[in-house]
């Protein structure tokens, strides 16, 4: 086989060097991530803001409530009666208020994050 034969090139296109292509891929992928990080579009935990500060409940919008938050943090932020919350969702009295919301479904079948959000909206209604 004659390896020196020069075949006609495909028309209307330009050869890309393999190493340049590899460099392009890495630059595009990791460069975009870097730019996103600089622009604040980066957080790897729902518990931290993009600046690295701990997420705090504002008490203004129940949609902000996440499963990792505790009963205590919701009671404090939304100024609701803890006993009323326990009664509404049949949460056993011995459940500590430091329990994460996502763990409540096991001990209180009536409980779900969506139901809690709806209840908080009702409580806030005049």
């Amino acid at each position: 086989m004659n390896t020196q034969t020069t075949a006609p090139r495909a028309r209307g296109s330009f050869r890309i060097n393999g190493l340049a292509y590899a460099a392009l891929i890495l630059t595009l992928f990791f460069g975009t991530i870097q730019v996103a990080q600089y622009a604040g579009l980066w957080s790897v935990s729902g518990k931290l803001t993009p600046d690295g500060a701990a997420v705090q409940l504002s008490g203004a919008d129940p949609a902000e409530i996440k499963g990792w938050m505790t009963i205590e943090s919701v009671v404090d932020a939304y100024h609701v009666d803890k006993a009323a919350l326990y009664a509404r969702f049949s949460i056993p009295a011995e459940t500590p208020s430091s329990a994460a919301l996502k763990d409540l479904e096991v001990v209180a079948p009536d409980f779900s994050i969506t139901a809690l959000r709806d209840w908080l909206i009702e409580q806030a209604a005049p």
């Binding site: 992928f29 975009t32 991530i33 996103a36 990080q37 957080s43 790897v44």
Partner: peptide, 15 residues
């Protein structure tokens, strides 16, 4: 999901 998921998807899309 978090903002990092969006940033990674953006990186995939640009690439």
């Amino acid at each position: 999901t978090h903002l990092s998921n969006l940033a990674l998807f953006l990186a995939v899309a640009v690439t």
